[in-house]
Nucleic acid binder design. Structure first.
Lengths: 120, 120
DNA sequence: AAGGTATTTAACCAAGTGGTTGAATATGAG
DNA sequence: CTCATATTCAACCACTTGGTTAAATACCTT
């Protein structure tokens, strides 16, 4: 239902096992078997996890004999960071403007404009 | 299955409708009905989406008569950014070291070390 | 008290997910 | 060719998810 890139990336990272795999790949490339070793689940399950990461563009793979080494694609992180920063900045700007507004109002009567800003 | 905070946050943002809601809340607080208006789904469905965002700590709510205004909690973004930056930095450092290594090797015979760096 | 608006809860359904086991494929080693 | 290793595919299962409709709750207005 959500097959756009950002959805795939967030969805992929919503699973702690997959985040752990990403964390380990950040330290260096690894094969499916190597990645599967620390977990109690079957290697097939880990293979599926890797496929999810691959579909999201977080991981790429090469061929080394029977092995399929996994490599972390760092650029995809930029996609997330960009999205996150965009709205965080908006929210913070709004917060700062509100803050300034409250500062202004401190020097005035301040009547019916309460209740909404009290939340922050 | 994944009830830690980061999983909840990533999972919440994996849905495009919920990301859209976050985007709109970044511009200002809004009620459930206001948020539901642009979509074709029922207001109950949107109410569920908001609950997911709330459980993830991305949204907080207050009370205004019958209304329950939603407010974007920007701090949670830091949690994500921290996680992302941590592993992106690791991956980039590793990439830079590889780059330096390849630079060194450029002054030497350079035999079987090709094919891996071509991807970047 | 009665009615209207805003929101949530409950029960249900189709589709998706993470796991399993068992069989298939791909490649290197004898 | 045969065997072992590495990985994937297929079928299945329990559970979750995003949606629905119908009913309940919360609060204001008259």
């Amino acid at each position: 239902m959500a097959d756009d890139r950002l959805s795939l990336v967030f969805s992929a990272l919503a699973d702690p096992t997959r985040r752990d795999i990403v964390a380990r790949l950040a330290a260096g490339d690894a094969t499916v078997n190597e990645l599967a070793e620390p977990y109690e689940v079957t290697v097939q399950a880990v293979s599926k996890h890797i496929k999810v990461l691959e579909d999201a563009g977080l991981v790429s793979r090469s061929r080394d004999a029977q092995r399929r080494p996994c490599h972390l694609e760092a650029e995809v992180f930029d996609l997330m960071t960009k999205w996150i920063e965009r709205y965080r900045r908006k929210a913070e700007d709004r917060f700062l403007r509100l803050d300034a507004l409250l500062g202004q109002m401190g020097e005035q009567p301040a009547t019916d404009t309460q209740g909404k800003e009290a939340a922050s």
